[in-house]
Write a protein that binds this DNA or RNA. Structure first.
Lengths: 144, 144
DNA sequence: TCACAACATTTGCAATTGCAACAGTTGCAT
DNA sequence: ATGCAACTGTTGCAATTGCAAATGTTGTGA
């Protein structure tokens, strides 16, 4: 039996493939709510974190400012987020979630939960915990 | 101390963040060779697998046909891949790597190796193996 | 206090990507 | 054989994304 192609078992490769599948799964479920994954991430963050500026969101996701600007354009048009004047800076905006967004939140969290469950369904609780721990280590210690 | 934001430790979230960093790291290194990550993936596959059609490549990566078509346009322009007539079908092309591509291959494999090493530098050999095993399980068993 | 660098956000334009339609080829059931 | 659905690959056009410049604001050091 010939050897597996080297890339198939490489960690980077597996991570990228899984990320792509997660992306597709999340986008499919979010499309029903008219959201992209990016918008969803911003929305959830603002809901959890409370009022924050666009730059803060950008730093959190390592996303360029213009992407935040445009994503929020969409979320604002959907009535989920609003840009307020910042209390201490006239250049920054303070973003916060609307009632409508808060009403939507439970459904959003349910999506995250369901997708994560689908992802780990082949693993026992113990293995899932171990995987979570190892991934967290890599997230913190990787040199890239 | 208040609880961590729920999403920070979710497995899907960590995988997506790592994938993004891997993507950036690979693209930065590949840019020196004038390749995108997509082109690189196709190139490596053709080098390892030998002659194959565009549709076969597409199925392997779950990539749309037009993306393959355009990526190969670039690789062909760079003199790394060529489209031959397929011996048994007039609609399919047989793609294969040029000498130039084969000469480049060692440098390409070195990049993969280096990035994977950077990724797992915070893990011991045993932990890295365990992580690889768990990820492989998820790749095979996930419901998404 | 004034010049200047850094910051927060937006936007015009170019490059990239995705969708859908197209052109040609093949297999298969009638 | 022939009509049709499925397949292989390409392309025009629209949507999305990314870069870089613009606009206005703030902090800081001479």
């Amino acid at each position: 039996m010939r050897a597996r192609l080297s890339r198939e078992n490489s960690m980077g490769w597996m991570i990228q493939r899984l990320a792509r599948r997660l992306d597709d799964a999340m986008n499919a479920r979010l499309a029903e709510h008219g959201l992209t994954l990016q918008q969803f991430a911003i929305l959830m963050t603002v809901i959890e974190h409370g009022r924050m500026t666009q730059a803060e969101i950008g730093r959190l996701f390592a996303m360029p400012a213009y992407a935040i600007s445009r994503a929020i354009d969409g979320l604002e048009a959907d009535g989920l987020l609003v840009r307020d004047a910042h209390p201490s800076s006239r250049r920054a905006h303070q973003i916060h979630a609307t009632e409508k967004a808060l009403d939507m939140a439970p459904a959003m969290f349910a999506i995250v939960k369901a997708v994560n469950a689908d992802l780990t369904q082949g693993l026992g609780d113990k293995e899932a915990g171990e995987l979570r721990r190892l991934l967290a280590t890599v997230v913190e210690t990787a040199a890239i």
